[in-house]
């Protein structure tokens, strides 16, 4: 039940953000029109936009998909994960805040794969299908047995450690190749660190981060 409520919240948030976007679009439109028109007509125009805007708002609410759709995605994931692992998914939950689907069960290792490769592939296919069916507003993240969370901590710590090393030794540090979401963790972790800067080089799947110490320090 609480999950349903959280989905409802997610949807209402989504509607709000859509409205915001529309509002700003309308604003730009109306500004352009105003430029071409008499000062006297301006107020009337704004009135019209208000009415129009209210009407569109109702339309959006109708377009929003029913909440049960997240269950369809869950079903799809369970089917794939259990087929791949030949094992059972014992728990699957949707974390609205992080837009993440967490999966638990015995013997699911093969669904994660080396460096999370298989999990990435499953996530990619799931998001393709979700987008095709207009189920989710933004890409969902799949995490199996908390792998991604653990990996996040590991990479964050690695980034901090390597940044210190770069500063201490006064030379660039080249990290091993990482997939894009892992590189993002490094960039994000070190973006506030004024002692280093991070850059990526080479092409996926060999793309890797280089941490440079800032010369000024």
């Amino acid at each position: 039940m609480s999950e349903q409520r959280s989905m409802e919240e997610a949807i209402s948030q989504f509607v709000e953000s859509l409205e915001e976007e529309q509002k700003s679009n309308k604003l730009i439109e109306s500004k352009q029109k105003i430029k071409n028109e008499e000062e006297a007509e301006k107020d009337k125009e704004d009135e019209n936009y208000k009415i129009e805007y209210e009407e569109e708002k109702e339309e959006i609410v109708e377009k929003i998909k029913p909440i049960e759709d997240i269950d369809k995605i869950k079903e799809f994931i369970i089917k794939i994960v259990s087929s791949v692992t030949n094992s059972e998914v014992s728990e699957i939950k949707y974390d609205k805040e992080n837009n993440e689907i967490q999966i638990y069960g015995k013997d699911l290792g093969i669904a994660i794969g080396k460096n999370g490769k298989n999990m990435e592939a499953i996530e990619y296919i799931v998001n393709l299908v979700a987008r095709r069916k207009n189920i989710l507003e933004s890409s969902v993240v799949i995490d199996i047995k908390g792998y991604r969370r653990k990996k996040y901590e590991i990479i964050k710590n690695l980034a901090i450690r390597m940044a210190k090393k770069a500063v201490r030794e006064g030379r660039k540090i080249v990290l091993k190749p990482m997939p894009s979401y892992e590189r993002k963790i490094v960039h994000d972790t070190l973006s506030d660190n004024k002692e280093v800067k991070t850059k990526s080089k080479n092409k996926d799947p060999y793309r890797r981060i280089i941490i440079y110490p800032n010369k000024e320090n």
């Binding site: 791949v84 030949n86 093969i110 794969g113 298989n118 592939a121 499953i122 393709l128």
Partner: peptide
């Protein structure tokens, strides 16, 4: 990318067996 993702998944399922 889609073809590769499908292959990765099928390969994983095969490896398990």
């Amino acid at each position: 990318r889609t073809a590769n993702a499908l292959r990765v998944i099928i390969r994983a399922a095969s490896a398990k067996r």
